[in-house]
Simulated scan of single mutants.
Amino acid sequence: MLRIVTINLNGIRSACAKGFLAWLAQQDADVVCLQELRAQEADLTPEMRAPGGYQGYFHYADKRGYSGVGIYAKRPPDNIVAGVGRPDIDAEGRYLELIFGTLSVVSVYLPSGSSGPERQAAKFAFMDYFFPQLATLAQCGREVVLCGDFNIAHHEIDLKNWRGNRHNSGFLPEERAWLTRVLNELSFVDVHRALCPSEGEGCYTWWSNRGQAYAKNVGWRIDYQIATPGLAARARQARVYKDQRFSDHAPLIIDYDL
């Protein structure tokens, strides 16, 4: 069984201070995808770089305390791809791919557009640039799983207050249509939703820090594992871990019969 975990840490140092690595040691995960490191290499302790049984691989943002993605893996990859090849995007540390034979595991962090029009424009620019790369991945001959914070809730079932968020970043029609294209035109599968087709509130992975959103479970499902059909067909179980909080996001854990 292949167990893959994805989590936006909202700062690796903060998450580790809240017990993330101790929790990880108990999960028997094979691959762990991380987003929003908010750190550079010099900021990481040896344990953060290579927690017991894992080797860490990272793509840092140029700006200190901002963005960045990583992957912990139990076995060394055959190849590593850091970045998407566009300087302004890669300066923000948003894409890391590890290739293990016929399997690619990607940690990806789409921009948030919630801070204003400039960042929403950057989000749309990322999406426009990234779509053809996803098309190439879909046809690469390997099984692929994209793990990460997409900053998009796809359907009404994927957030509590969908009516009040129809004009807000993360639930804009253009964003949702883009994700629909990824799934329908490129034949990727939203693995969590495929395993839990009608589950709403139990699927949320992010909660605002405002208004007791977590306590009231006023959440969004914006963290995904999106896979090629062959790998998605091997998915057996998905769960969101909420017994402890390491971040404003919760880990998404999926087991594949692989």
Rank of each mutant, 00 (worst) to 15 (best):
Q55F: 08
I80S: 02
R38L: 03
K74E: 06
G52M: 13
E118P: 03
I80N: 05
S104M: 07
V106H: 09
L98R: 08
R49Y: 02
Y66K: 02
A125P: 10
G116R: 07
L103V: 07
G93I: 05
L98T: 06
P117Y: 00
M48F: 07
L110W: 14
G56S: 08
V108N: 03
G56R: 01
P76Q: 14
S115V: 12
F124T: 01
V81Y: 07
F124Y: 15
S115E: 14
L44W: 02
S114D: 11
F126W: 15
L98Y: 11
D90L: 09
E41L: 12
Y54E: 12
A61E: 04
I89P: 02
G56E: 11
I89Q: 03
E97Q: 14
D78P: 00
V81A: 04
L103N: 03
S67H: 02
E41N: 13
G116P: 01
S112V: 04
P76T: 13
F58L: 00
R49A: 15
P117M: 01
D88C: 08
G83A: 04
S107F: 00
P76V: 13
P111Q: 04
Y54T: 11
E41A: 15
G85W: 01
S115N: 05
A121I: 06
D62A: 14
S112Y: 02
P111A: 09
S114E: 11
Y95M: 04
V108T: 12
I99T: 14
P76M: 09
Y95W: 13
F124W: 12
V108Q: 01
F124K: 01
Q55A: 14
V108E: 10
V69W: 03
L96M: 09
V105L: 07
A50R: 00
V106Y: 00
A39L: 01
I89E: 11
G83N: 10
K63I: 06
Q55M: 11
R119Y: 13
E92N: 04
R86E: 15
